[in-house]
Design a binder for these strands. Structure first.
Lengths: 343, 343
DNA sequence: TCAGGAAATGACTTCGTAGTCAAAGACTAA
DNA sequence: TTAGTCTTTGACTACGAAGTCATTTCCTGA
């Protein structure tokens, strides 16, 4: 398995300490205060001194210590992001999207990968001990946890989640328009009845999608024949569809709470049941993962604007950083229908 | 698009400052030093005082400030991870894997999402300004950049990359055994010739896979008929295969530098060329992404042990944190053959 | 040329914890 | 009991930059 590690050692240069503002000050012939001012915005420094200081700083590779800065100004330049293990299934790139946006906003992303889909006060206190300037959570936060952030004046943004009780800033997805368009389209099949493959019961996203589907179906005069509770996996979609086929009740229209299950169902139709999509079964997913557009699948799905949601989350967080009073806001970006071959 | 934001404001409790070690000390009737000792490991405190201090700390939700701790002890409890934009294509879950391992090791993951696949000294100095305890890079680092980390006594681990010149710790993938097994299998087709869909020229991973394939092919008596330079995308794989088919030279065996291109090639065979896989064309990928095992594709591929590599990277980093002298080590985990239907 | 005001700069203190050192307390052996 | 060792504790300072305030410098207009 492992190549026998070729290990070698090498002595390090001895006096390799990072330069401080005092070092730069001495080198540039100014005071430490002045060096500090050069590296702070809104400071008033002569262009000449600024040049001298910057030259000196460059010479010794000086960068202000974030730790020291955090201590005095209470701003660390970091935004914490809570990500849960299962959350990466549908959109593994979320951390990259958020990371880019955070970076672009001049901050850094401190990631906490946590096992559970619910985060408590203890975790938040740990996060707060890093003096983060903001918190974006892809997990559900306890009311206490949110309260703790508010008390510490750290803006919180819930990502793809909303808090039912606590007032808090959140960015999530509005299913309304997309689902409306979808059902308008599905009406063409002449069978106003759907089968729904839902996500896990306790998941916020799952619940909100189910609600959205129920409302849109009702509005469009559709009945929901069956709701099967799944786990967002390809395999579940495949098995569920196979079982439906085996029991003789093949749905005319199948909606899934995410793309993986929808793709699994398509597989089941083709491989296991010998059914054609969309001629025999129309199948619709949710998310618009890259594979949805692959020619093998051509999955009609609801596109969730993850990238835009990430940008919104970061801008909501940064906007609140300098505002002393807490601001609640429920923001939703619309999901759009991606009409492809499967329905 | 956006729901009219229901914005409400709410006054914050006034004296909501985070508790300090002094507060806890006062509450517990001890000195600040003692509080500090309780929250440090290897300290010597009586059980009785420890209990009192911990009770007081719990009462006011005290956690030591990481910023202050970083300032005095020069340990921030964070490991920086450099991730590049394109790197997420094959294994978007890397940040989750690394994140979990880092968390398990008692540290936090500070993510830098950067556009380029090459990182210079300036970036590293920025990273070092956060006082990180280690750096795991999924991007190529300049020699200067590595040098800067060494000088700052911050252990560096290159992830899925190796540095040709600089001595450094790295964890990457050994293609040897897996490719050997693959070619042994491919010999059954009786056509000792392959076509290879490579990755981008400047990419380290791409280059190392190409080298691996060349060596294994030579060892097994295979010729490489064509090498096409791709971009790791599904679309490129599909187009490349279609063009090969259109020009009349359909390869008997096609190897791709990643799964996405291989899957694209399978698509092209089925949809565009009417060829059967593996009867007409045998196709092999690299990575073992989830879709490779989907019944639609059944892609034979080389599995890259990302999870294990993440664990190794973190343990290599943490192991070096308390060691004063720098230790170089080239560690490789073997890719294993996942034999499925496509070859 | 000089007064008045704005801009630039430096001395000093602060942030919250870790570590150093010395003092006090507990315990052991004779 | 007493000297000697080990453990526990507290006073004090360092860490590196930011902010406060006082001082100096630079301009402007009369």
């Amino acid at each position: 398995m492992t190549t026998p590690p070729k290990t070698s050692t090498k002595a390090l240069p001895p006096g390799a300490q990072r330069a401080t503002s005092h070092d730069v000050a001495r080198l540039a012939g100014v005071s430490q205060s002045t060096v500090s001012r050069v590296f702070r915005d809104g400071a008033s420094v002569t262009q000449a001194t600024r040049d001298r200081v910057e030259a000196a700083a460059r010479q010794v590779n000086y960068r202000p210590s974030r730790a020291a800065r955090a201590l005095t100004s209470n701003r660390s330049g970091m935004i914490a992001v809570i990500a849960t293990k299962p959350s990466h299934r549908a959109h593994p790139e979320v951390l990259y999207d958020l990371g880019e946006e955070i970076q672009a906003a001049g901050h850094r992303q401190l990631v906490f990968v946590l096992p559970e889909d619910r985060v408590d006060v203890a975790t938040v206190h740990d996060i707060l001990s890093y003096n983060v300037d903001g918190l974006i959570s892809c997990a559900v936060l306890d009311d206490d946890a949110i309260e703790a952030c508010h008390a510490a004046r750290v803006p919180v943004v819930l990502f793809n989640r909303e808090s039912p009780a606590m007032p808090v800033a959140s960015i999530s997805c509005d299913h309304g328009a997309g689902l409306h368009a979808l059902f308008a389209r599905l009406a063409a099949y002449g069978t106003p009845e759907i089968t729904y493959l839902a996500g896990p019961a306790k998941s916020f996203v799952s619940a909100s999608r189910l609600t959205g589907v129920r409302e849109a179906a009702a509005a469009a005069g559709f009945a929901i024949a069956t709701v099967l509770q799944g786990d967002y996996s390809f395999d579940f979609g495949r098995k569920a569809m196979t079982e439906l086929g085996g029991s003789g009740v093949v749905p005319r229209i199948l909606l899934a709470a995410n793309d993986a299950m929808a793709l699994g169902a398509i597989e089941a139709c083709r491989r296991d049941l010998g059914l054609r999509v969309p001629e025999d079964v129309a199948i619709v997913g949710y998310d618009d993962v890259p594979q949805a557009s692959w020619p093998s699948f051509e999955l009609t799905t609801l596109h969730q604007p993850v990238r835009d949601m990430a940008a919104a989350a970061v801008s909501m967080a940064t906007a609140r950083m300098d505002v002393p009073e807490f601001q609640s806001e429920v923001r939703r970006l619309g999901a759009t229908l991606r009409l492809r071959g499967s329905a």
